[in-house]
Write a protein that binds this DNA or RNA. Sequence first.
RNA 1: GGCUCUAUCGUCUAUCGGCUAGGACAUAUCCUUUUCAAGGAUAGAAGCAGGGUUCGACUCCCUGUAGAGUCACCA
Length: 438
Amino acid sequence: MSSKVITRFAPSPTGFLHIGGVRTALFSYLYARQNKGIFALRIEDTDKARNKEEWTKGLVDDLAWLGLKHDNFSKQSDRTEIYKGYLKKLIDSGHAYVSKEIPKEEGERDEVIRFKNPNKKIIFTDLIRGEVTMDTTDLGDFVIARSIDEPIFHLAVVIDDFEMGITHVIRAEEHISNTPRQILIQEAIGATRPLYAHLPLVLATDKSKLSKRKHGETVSLTYYRNLGYLPEALLNFVAMLGWNPGTEQEIFSLAELVKEFDLSKVQKSGAIFNIEKLNWFNKKYIEMMDEKIFAETMKLFLPADVSDVTAMKLAPLLKEKISFFAQIPELLKNELSFVDAVVPYEREKLNWKQEKNTKEYIKKVIDLIGYIPEKNFTKEKVKEAVWLYAEEKGRGNVLWPMRYALSGMEKSPDPFIIAEILGKEETIKRLTAAYEAI
RNA sequence: GGCUCUAUCGUCUAUCGGCUAGGACAUAUCCUUUUCAAGGAUAGAAGCAGGGUUCGACUCCCUGUAGAGUCACCA
C-alpha cells in the first residue's frame, strides 16, 4: 500500500503571513493536490509569549483569500496533553531529562527538559538538495520543553508530523539545520521519518532573507493585498520564484500549477523578490479580469467624490493603465485630473506643431460633434463624427488641439474617450473655451 | 567563528556532456499612433576563479572565493 500524501503548512501566529510563507504554503498545497493528498494547516503556537489570536485569524484569512484551501486545521495549543504524554515517555525511557539551569534572561526557568543527545551523525535525503549530512554532537543536549506542559517547537513539530501522518515536510531552507535534531527526536519516540523538501529562500534586493525587522511591512502579504494586487497574480509570481516548468509558459492558473508543478524542478538557490515582475504579472491578470469584477474592485480604490457614472466610464481607461489598484487615486490626481476640471493650459500649445488654422479646426469639431445626441455621446460616435474631417485636414492638426483642449495636458488618453467621459455638454464647453482663447 | 546550503544576463530562469548559451521582467532604440499608455520589432546584457575527468565541459569531481542560512528556555 502506498500511503497517501499529506503535507502541511505550519506557521506560527506571531505576525502577518510572510511572502515567503505564501510560497511555502503554495508549494505544499500544490504537492498535496497533485497527488490527491491532504493539505493540512497547523498553527504552531507553543510560544505563549509571542502568539496572538488575531494573527491566527489573519493567517487563515490570508490563505483563504489566496484560494489555498486546507483540508484540516489544528493548533498546537490544543494538544498540550499529547505532548505531555510523549514527554513523560521520553523521560522515563531516558531519552530526556529534567535539567537544572541558571536563568540567563528574564522569563527563563531554573528547570527545563533537555533531550539526551546520542551524539551521532544524521544523514537525510532532501527532495531538493539531495543528501545532507550533519553531526549532532555540536548540538549538545538541547531543550525540548520549558516544562512538562510547555513543549517547544522541535518536540511539537515532530510529534504532530508523526501523529498527523505527514509524509512530506515542505518548508523553508532556514529549517535545514533544525532537521537533524528533529530526526533525533523522531528516532527517540519511534516515529517514521517524513520526506523533506527544503525550499530556497525568498530574498530581498540585498540578497538577505526577507524579514520584517529588516525589510518592514513589504514582506507581508497584507501589504500587497492592500495595494490591490490580485491573489492569482501573487500566487503565479511567487510560484515562478524558484520553480519553472522548463517551458516558456509563465502565466499559470492555480489549477495549471497543480498539474504542472514539479518538486524536483525547484531551484536550489534563493530568489530575489522582484517587484517589477510582480507588477507585470498583476497587470496581465488585470487585463484578463472580467469587466464587471474589475469595476467592482476599482470602486474600492476610488476616491469618494467620483460618481458612479464617471467611474463606469473611467473603468476601461484605468484597466489598461494600472499595474495594481492602489495606483488609481494617484492617476486620478495627476494624469487623469482633467476629469474633474479643466487643467489650465498654454494657449500656444493648442497648435499641432506649426499649424496656423487651429481655430478653424476647433470650430468645425464643435459643429461635427454637435449633431450627436447627448445620450449617444460615446467614444465611437465622437470618433465617427470627427474622423473623416481629421483625415482630410491631417489627424494631428485636428486631433491634437481637440485632445489638448479637452485635457489641457500634453499627455493623456485619446480625445474620443475623454469626450465620452466628460459628456457632451462639458466637451463642447471646453472646446468652445479653447476656440475663444486662441 | 563552527556547521550547512548555494553559485548562468541587473532580476527570475532554460540547458540534465555537443552552445552561434534560449526565454521572461527591467533597460535602450525603432515602428504604429494626435500625445501618453498599450501593442509590435530590434539591441545590449551571463556561465565566480583555478585545477582536474573527457574527443568535448555552463553542465561531472576537487580546491579556492563569494553570498546566504543557522548556531535560543522563537518558530
